[in-house]
């Protein structure tokens, strides 16, 4: 409800900082990784999994070994047990900190032969002129330098005017500027709690992030008898 004469500013910008006020440097967040661990000289594939859906997909499995973390931004860094791959799992972070998170990850990204970012977004954010009738849509974005790993990632390109933001966008931008390959898969999804997206699971299995697809199950409250 509004009152006559009241000025209502739209909430579209509430996520951003207010440049009209001077922000005290005391409010600045300094991000860091918890442990001081040695960065490997070479990583085959650096995998970024962004969002709660992907977090739920992998957390039940024990294919990964925790290497480091940054709890302020819900970031966890893992190493796969079976391959020379690293996995960065991140969810529910402040978008303003995206580029700072990328800075934290740069030392890993720079030694990686390839980078794959997978992120989820609500299906309503997928903008196309036709009606979307599917439960989910997967689209890809790739850097100019082609990936050398044969993972057979053949998803259609992300159509304009759709864009990605955040850590995945930052990592891909960095790889583009340094002439290295990277690909991002954007999964627009309607009901994440009900769906198992086979294409993503197959890819995560190939990268040894999760075990064989048949063994996977969503281990959340909706699968329990608690709220039936």
């Amino acid at each position: 409800m509004t009152t006559f004469g009241e000025i209502n500013e739209p909430s579209s910008r509430t996520a951003w900082e207010d440049w009209d006020d001077v922000i005290s440097s005391e409010n600045y967040v300094d991000l860091h990784l918890e442990k001081t661990v040695e960065v490997p000289q070479q990583i085959d594939t650096f995998i970024i999994l962004e969002g709660r859906y992907l977090y739920d997909c992998i957390r039940a499995h024990h294919q990964l070994e925790v290497v480091n973390a940054s709890p302020e931004v819900n970031l966890r860094l893992y190493r796969t047990r079976k391959m020379n791959n690293y996995v960065c799992m991140i969810r529910d972070y402040n978008l303003i900190l995206s580029s700072e998170i990328v800075e934290l990850l740069k030392k890993y990204i720079d030694v990686s032969t390839d980078v794959i970012a997978i992120l989820t977004k609500p299906l309503v954010e997928y903008q196309v002129s036709e009606l979307v009738t599917k439960d989910y849509v997967i689209r890809s974005l790739a850097t100019s330098k082609q990936s050398s790993i044969g993972l057979d990632i053949n998803f259609p390109h992300l159509e304009q005017p759709n864009i990605i933001t955040g850590v995945s966008a930052g990592v891909l931008s960095w790889r583009e500027i340094t002439d290295k390959p990277a690909v991002a898969l954007v999964c627009y999804i309607e009901h994440p709690e009900e769906l198992q997206i086979q294409e993503l699971f197959n890819l995560l299995e190939k990268l040894k992030v999760i075990p064989h697809v048949e063994k996977t199950h969503r281990n959340n409250l909706l699968n329990s008898n608690l709220y039936i």
């Binding site: 974005l141 390109h157 990605i164 955040g166 850590v167």
Partner: peptide
Amino acid sequence: PAIIPILGYDPYKIGSTNLSGC
């Protein structure tokens, strides 16, 4: 690091596979 990252394909050319950033 001063700019919030965004990424998509060329906003001025439909069907382009050239990336455009922030």
